[in-house]
Nucleic acid binder design. Structure first.
Lengths: 235, 235
DNA sequence: GCATCATTGTCCGCTTTCGTACCGAGTCCG
DNA sequence: CGGACTCGGTACGAAAGCGGACAATGATGC
């Protein structure tokens, strides 16, 4: 399935482009499979491919060195990787990798740069997404600083559900604890609290969200601001 | 002192622009005094002035509502406010206000937009700063998630010192606690630990940094990554 | 079926931080 | 000088989270 040109796309950012801007990219887009753990960006290495996800999602993790890494953002079919390229540089200190397997289309950094040189509206639309992503990161900073594990977990699950579009998230507590930067048993306990509150059911490696509104309530305002801004700008 | 056109500037971003790009902005720049607490951006309100600080610094605070606000970034003479305008929108959900009084130059959002329309290199240089600021925010997210008060405080003081260029920071524990999102006595205790470690002296409303290297060590890798990237891109 | 492994649930003592309160010290102003 | 106010230091019990360990449970492979 890899390698062919896409005719249409589930990526919300791509589908939001004007027909002309999309045609500017299309000849250089390639379908790719995105298996679990596939690295899309490596810390401080030049970015040579940029990915627009069609399904699944990726985590952006800061400072992976020494096991002290922590997730700062999620990217799914609402966005793209390689924001550094939009900003005029070719790398970032973060790592980006697939957290939930899926598919996407990719383009070389060089092709994207050339297309953005030709079309300012293209650059402009992609920058709007970069802005929305930046807000997501500020919300992560806020949640990390002020919220309990339970609320941060609720926020994470909501963001994950937005991106996979299903009620079921496939993930171990271990992985969640790495993303949130907390102890693994801390996740177990917090999940149990959320389950007792009746907003989800947790099975082995699987979390089923049953009451999204309730989950939003439990997230206690750590969720929603960035999402609303995305809709305002690109919805 | 307010209102006159600046001939030269201490703002590192402005002085890094090409002469042509600077001349594009200069006719619309106005000197302004920036007293403590002056609001430079209000949450969700259209930005009409953009500030390039010459001295002092400003805090960017997320979600000021309900006393749950927390600082996500600092801006001084290395940068500018109004990054949303660079990204193609006119507002952000954050509040930006002067934390350490100083001076700066300002330009209307409209004039800046017109100048960026004319010069892509201008837009590009400013976007490099937006990238560096985004890294600062990811570091805040990391520090908030993984570090103790003592280390977050050390990081904050280092960032403040970078911006004021002096060894003395004028601030109450109360204000610091609001910025870091912790209890006020927590700051008192952490400051005492830093003082016992011999890296600073704390007086009433005044912190004097005496051993910057030591402070960097105590910040335990929460400080430095974003700063190095700023130097690589704009230094 | 049985052994093995990954995952989850639970527990311990300890550290960090919290919320709150109170008091002393410094500063300002009449 | 004296009173009012702000700021900083300290204390207390409680909550949250940690590091580490271990047992129970579910999945997987032989």
């Amino acid at each position: 399935m890899s390698g062919n040109l896409p005719r249409s796309t589930a990526n919300r950012l791509l589908s939001r482009l004007s027909p002309e801007d999309f045609l500017l990219l299309q000849p250089n887009l390639k379908w790719v499979d995105l298996p679990l753990r596939r690295q899309l960006e490596r810390p401080n290495k030049p970015i040579d491919q940029i990915y627009f996800l069609e399904s699944g999602f990726a985590s952006v993790v800061a400072d992976g060195s020494g096991g002290r890494g922590i997730e700062v953002g999620l990217i799914g079919r609402e966005g793209m990787t390689g924001l550094s390229v939009l900003m005029g540089t070719d790398r970032s200190p973060h790592e980006t990798f697939i957290q939930s397997a899926g598919e996407g289309v990719r383009i070389s950094a060089g092709s994207l740069r050339r297309a953005m040189d030709i079309s300012r509206t293209l650059h402009g639309t992609l920058l709007l997404y970069a802005h929305a992503f930046a807000l997501q990161v500020t919300n992560t900073a806020m949640a990390n600083g002020r919220s309990k594990i339970e609320q941060r977990l609720a926020r994470w699950l909501l963001m994950a559900q937005d991106r996979i579009g299903k009620d079921e998230v496939l993930l171990t507590h271990e992985l969640l604890s790495l993303m949130l930067g907390v102890r693994r048993p801390g996740v177990t306990v917090a999940l149990k609290l959320l389950e007792e509150a009746g907003v989800l059911r947790a099975r082995r490696g699987l979390i089923s969200i049953t009451d999204r509104r309730g989950l939003e309530r439990l997230a206690d305002r750590t969720y929603g601001v960035a999402e609303a801004e995305y809709r305002r700008l690109l919805g």
